[in-house]
Design a protein around this nucleic acid. Sequence first.
DNA 1: ATGGTTGCCGTGCAA
Length: 270
Amino acid sequence: MGNALAMRLVTWNINSLRLRLPHLETLASTLRPDVICLQETKVPDPLFPAEALRALGYEHLHYKGMKSYNGVAILSRYPLTPLDRLPDWHGKEDCRHVGALVHTPGAPVELHDFYVPAGGDEPDVTINPKFAHKLAFVEEVTAWFKNRTRERTILVGDFNIAPLEHDVWSHKQLLKIVSHTPPEIERLTAWQNVGFVDAMRHFVPAHEKLYTWWSYRNRDWKTSNRGRRLDHVWVTPDLVPSLSTMTVLRDARDWTSPSDHVPVAVDFTL
DNA sequence: ATGGTTGCCGTGCAA
């Protein structure tokens, strides 16, 4: 970005960092983000392609990954101070959260990158432990943020919950589908109400459809357009005046061998 | 109501 006191932030569930490294290069050269938060990197730390990312201009890297599943990463042109001592959510070492102070040309901002559990297919905690895990994860994260100072903080990631009626293609048909059920939405809303503002909906009114994910299982994602907004950018209220633009990079869903999620970019004047 | 596809790997599992 031209403005020295600005930051372009992208969040993207890349669904395998190593497979889609060429797409990340495209993203880096076209949007030129200052900071990129990735989810589902699916790469153990010793195999993380750090050199390739540094070559793209992301000198500062903070990541936590494992074999085959999950994995999150922050790539930054600005120096990072990783937040160590983040909780081990739900007693699992499953690489769903990293955080760092980002030393922008303005004052530092605290950035959290989350990959919330998808929760399986059955929205019933008594028969589906993955759904129970998802609800418990959000509850634990909510309780943790209640005890922190909540200023100059940004939360992004694949939250795997589409909370608003127009965050899904059919509110009525998805009410019993994991990602849009009332217990998930209640918990996500409680988390947000700890002290965050939905930055995407700051730009796009609640009555307009807004999606970031289209299933692989639709032959023609664009025609059927059965999308959901699973990816989010939240900011503390003090950062709302610094929100400048927001872009959902819908075109990325048509890239060769795409992720099922598309990148979301937000520009700040910090 | 069901099945649809993808990535990880080398089989089913998770999404």
